[in-house]
């Protein structure tokens, strides 16, 4: 079964295009300097429409997660993490932690993680792995 994939909108196209070329693209406000996520063509902190897209560090820490023991059919049959990382630039982002056992012992909160892009069909998803792994 094929993985459920995002369908970009005009406001989010830059983000998904970035994933395909290995860039985690975030937006920040020119007026108040705030980085925000998910993408939108204005700043949710101050309402300014003067915003820019930039390439983020791709680094963050594991903020919270569950290990789903009843995976969705398109996610395979083994228990897997559904995680939120806190990016170095500030926002949180849902993802999967890959490249390590899917166990509470291996998935320690606040451990450094870094983005890795995995291709599924016509899309690439931003997944995260333990930093340096």
């Amino acid at each position: 079964m094929d993985r459920a994939l995002p369908q970009p909108t005009p406001e989010t196209q830059h983000f998904w295009d970035g994933c395909k070329v290995g860039e985690l693209r975030l937006q920040r406000c020119a007026a108040c300097a705030q980085t925000y996520f998910p993408p939108r063509p204005f700043c949710p902190a101050c309402g300014s429409r003067s915003v820019e897209v930039y390439v983020a560090s791709g680094k963050g820490v594991l903020w919270s997660y569950v290990i789903n023991h009843r995976p969705r059919p398109d996610m395979g049959t083994e228990p897997h993490s559904i995680a939120v990382v806190k990016l170095k630039e500030g926002p949180t982002m849902m993802t999967n932690i890959v490249g390590c056992p899917q166990t509470p012992e291996a998935l320690q909160l606040d451990m450094p993680v870094e983005v890795t892009f995995e291709t599924f069909g016509a899309m690439a998803l931003p997944l995260f792995k333990p930093a340096g792994a």
């Binding site: 459920a4 369908q7 919270s64 569950v66 789903n68 996610m75 559904i82 849902m94 999967n96 899309m123």
Partner: peptide
């Protein structure tokens, strides 16, 4: 949760199913 909705783009691709895998997401941090 259509693929173009915010949830369809930024949560569904990572395997969330129903409330047991969504409502529970913040709890480890808590």
């Amino acid at each position: 949760r259509a693929p173009a909705s915010l949830m369809g783009q930024f949560e569904m691709p990572f395997g969330v199913t129903s409330p047991p895998t969504m409502f529970t997401i913040p709890v480890m941090r808590y």
